[in-house]
Amino acid sequence: MTETTTRPTATLPTRRAAVGLTGVTKDFGQVRAVRGIDLEIHPGEVVAFLGPNGAGKTTTIDMILGLSEPTSGEVRVLGLAPRHAIARGLVSAVMQTGGLLKDLTVRETVAYTASLFVDTRPVAEVLATAGIADIADRKVGRCSGGEQQRLRFAMALLSNPALLLLDEPTTGMDVEGRRAFWNSIRRDTDTGRTVLFATHYLEEADQYADRIVLISQGRIVADGSGAQIRALASGRTVRASVGRVDTTAIAAIAGVDSVNLTGDRLTVHAGDSDAVARYLLDRTDATDLEIVSKGIEEAFLRLTGSSDSSDSSDSTDGSPR
């Protein structure tokens, strides 16, 4: 453990990003699904890929898993090419559907998967931990959706991966199931495992991720903690009737996103609505002033531009045929 001198430090630096994307793009024919992503995820982080359907989340995850090659740019997982990281059992993924053979039993599925890795936890222990020991002899095809999902988790954790990827992991779960799921994931990440999950639920990303990477139309549009993303999305709208007003002065107030004057109706979008209100009441003849909070979901839609782009980019999310 302390023999750092024997390590070939020239090729393998001691601290490596769990995931490193450099200028990654991906085209499917004429469609550009990923338009240049640079991202570094640190070991132990729980990161959410947040974005609407068709944003390029799944395409990016496929490249991290080595299932597809980027059109340009470089993908590294713990300093290795994705295929090499997978061959060492360092990366696992849990997909929301499929990935199981219906005519194998639960135990056979775990034993089969375990046999492919060099080091794995004992099959019996894994079945017990996942709470599927009592259905070990049941055919996978006869298991409920929840049982199949527990089986997928058992398989993913067999090789003790350093990086766990979850693609829309809680789709179809009820609130209680979702909470139980994330509790077990959070308990698991205490071991230092890095988790990257894709979701289109803002609330889920906010509640369970250390860091949110907001993706829209194949690009990262925001990257920060839940609080930072919420701040980005938490602007308010200030409306007032005005006679004479200097719109450039308002636009210059810190935190103002946009100023619009139609007739005598002034509409200002701003992060700091108090400053705008104070200015309007102190320095102008504004009347009928009202402050409306933008819904967080609405703000998220505005940020990701999904309302006007979903049609054109829906088909690009990971289904090249």
């Binding site: 299932l67 997978i86 061959a87 993924a93 997909m95 499929g98 199981l100 053979l101 219906k102």
Partner: peptide
């Protein structure tokens, strides 16, 4: 059958 059930894809996430 293995492709239809996503098993081939699952196997590609292993060292096989």
């Amino acid at each position: 059958v293995e492709r239809a059930q996503g098993w081939s894809r699952q196997l590609r996430l292993t060292p096989l």
